[in-house]
């Protein structure tokens, strides 16, 4: 017998029991787990979407802030650059002025120094010239410098042309006394007499001459009265000497010649 009705009923019951059991122990828990996971995933996706929107919003905010910051930075930088440029210009101007001032001072100091040096050279030269001349004259002809100077002064007066003599005579005769004879050194009595004599003869001066010594004046003898002056001095020689010295100083220095015996090994 292929069909056993008891077995049929029992199997139908078994099957229905199995349906019920599997529903409670298999399908429902599995479906619940799947639903839970789907819900969880949906929640996470929603959260992710919300986070994404939030992130986008924050990114936009950040971008705007960044742009504002960049603009502010550019503005500040520009103003700082302008200020720095102005400050630089101001400092440069100050520095230029300062340099200009220093240069002017330096040039003035240099000029002053040059002048004092020139005066010193002139003075030294004069003294040296006098000393040399004095010694040379004394050694060669046993005559003094004062005598020679007086002699030259007298010779110069005597050597004047007649026109010059007339002009000088008219000038000194109209001049009010005293007539001053000024010399660098003290003139001895013979020289004074000689000058007085030639002044009387050549210039027609009748009044007593007044002799003065001025050690700071340019070396020589001068005769002055009321703005008129007849003089002889060594200033021409000194000017010539000074111009030659200046020319020598302006020349570039020549290279020094090494001694042959001192060459380095």
């Amino acid at each position: 017998m292929l069909l056993d009705w008891f077995t049929v009923v029992a199997q139908a019951l078994n099957f229905l029991i199995l349906v019920w059991l599997l529903k409670h122990f298999l399908y429902q828990p599995i479906l619940d787990a799947i639903d839970g996971r789907e819900h969880q995933i949906a929640t996470k996706l929603a959260e992710a979407e919300a986070n994404k929107i939030e992130a986008r919003k924050e990114r936009e905010e950040f971008r705007q802030k960044n742009e504002a910051f960049e603009q502010r930075r550019a503005t500040l930088w520009s103003s700082v650059e302008d200020e720095a440029s102005l400050e630089r210009q101001r400092l440069l101007n100050e520095a230029r002025k300062e340099v200009e001032g220093f240069r002017n001072k330096w040039q003035a100091a240099l000029s002053k120094e040059h002048q004092s040096l020139s005066e010193e050279i002139t003075r030294q030269t004069r003294e040296e010239v006098f000393a040399i001349t004095r010694k040379a004259l004394k050694d060669l002809a046993a005559i003094s410098l004062e005598a020679q100077m007086t002699d030259i002064f007298v010779q110069r007066l005597l050597g004047l042309s007649s026109t010059e003599r007339q002009e000088l005579q008219s000038a000194f005769q109209t001049a009010s006394p005293p007539t001053i004879v000024r010399s660098t050194f003290h003139l001895p009595a013979p020289q004074r007499h000689a000058i007085e004599a030639v002044a009387k003869d050549v210039l027609g001066i009748q009044t007593q001459l007044q002799f003065e010594t001025d050690p700071h004046s340019v070396c020589g003898i001068e005769l002055t009265a009321n703005g008129h002056k007849v003089a002889w001095s060594i200033s021409d020689y000194l000017i010539t000497l000074k111009s030659r010295l200046d020319e020598l100083l302006k020349q570039p220095p020549k290279p020094s010649v090494k001694p042959s015996g001192l060459s380095k090994p």
Partner: peptide, 24 residues
């Protein structure tokens, strides 16, 4: 045999679904 299959299915389902995870 049917009972055996039923037992296998129920016990297996119970064991597996005892610690179901809703996580990934």
């Amino acid at each position: 045999a049917t009972w055996g299959l039923m037992l296998f299915l129920i016990i297996g389902s119970t064991i597996i679904t005892r610690n179901l995870s809703t996580a990934l």
